[in-house]
């Protein structure tokens, strides 16, 4: 069953069109990756789905009903949670308080403070620390945990690996299997193409605001991806 469906989405930053006629769907429990160069419209796409950026044309359908034009807080209460680009933790809040913000969405389910601490044991000892007084990788774990505590049906992850050492990135992606077991679908933006192909069942490559290539990760050749990624 389709969980999320985008139909002919056009989004703008002022007069500049950032997304052209974007259409694709995500099935429940599926992992879909978005790849593409800087400025290809990946973050714009995430912000549009989360309701933080209005789109002038097209429609976003979540769980059978349109969420186009809906307020962002209502969309997240409906079951779309975000791990935003650059993590965006709250510096005035402790690690645990940051996690607890996920509970504000009012959705109860598999993810609780306890299951998040089981997923990221390192956070438990750091829970009283200010969220900015921990390492980048740990901050990313807090951002993921905060989104999981919303108990979403769809998790949007924007550049999890941004600014992190490869070893840390591998650790974070290693948790994906456990996260997927809770049954949620994931839409992730990833600069690292190999990583994106590895974790996802479907890849969409963006080029200048349009989908330039779509397919199952194992079916796409690197030459085709390179062409779709850089254009020309």
């Amino acid at each position: 069953m389709k969980l999320l469906e985008l139909n002919g989405l056009n989004a703008f930053h002022g007069d500049l069109q950032a997304l052209h006629d974007v259409s694709f769907a995500i099935v429940e429990g599926e992992v879909v990756a978005i790849i593409g160069a800087n400025g290809a419209g990946k973050t714009t796409l995430m912000r549009s789905i989360a309701g933080l950026l209005p789109h002038r044309q097209g429609e976003i359908i979540f769980d059978g009903a349109s969420i186009s034009g809906k307020r962002a807080d209502l969309i997240s209460r409906q079951g779309i949670a975000s791990v935003p680009e650059g993590r965006c933790l709250y510096p005035s809040l402790s690690v645990e308080e940051n996690l607890k913000m996920g509970l504000a969405a009012g959705r109860r389910g598999y993810w609780t403070l306890q299951t998040v601490y089981e997923l990221f044991p390192a956070l438990k000892d750091l829970r009283r620390r200010p969220a900015t007084a921990i390492s980048g990788g740990q901050q990313q774990m807090v951002a993921i945990g905060r989104a999981l505590l919303c108990n979403p049906r769809l998790l949007l992850c924007d550049e999890l690996s941004l600014g992190l050492a490869p070893k840390i990135v591998a650790e974070i992606y290693a948790c994906f299997a456990r996260i997927r077991q809770s049954g949620l679908a994931i839409l992730l933006v990833e600069q690292d193409v190999t990583r994106a192909l590895e974790v996802s069942s479907m890849v969409h490559c963006f080029l200048k605001g349009r989908i330039s290539l779509s397919g199952r990760g194992d079916a796409l050749g690197l030459a085709a991806i390179s062409h779709a990624y850089f254009g020309g």
Binding site: A50, G51, L52, R71, A72, D73, L74, S76, R77, A81, S82, P84, C88, Y90, P91, S92, L93, E97, N98, K100, M101, G102, L103, A104, A105, G106, R107, R146, A147, C150
Partner: peptide, 24 residues
């Protein structure tokens, strides 16, 4: 309180709190 936590988070970043279902 939980309300106070939301207030401090909103003061930090009112864009991001919406992603956790908070109507800023």
């Amino acid at each position: 309180t939980g309300f106070g936590r939301m207030v401090r988070a909103t003061a930090d970043n009112f864009h991001v709190v919406q992603m956790q279902g908070v109507n800023y």
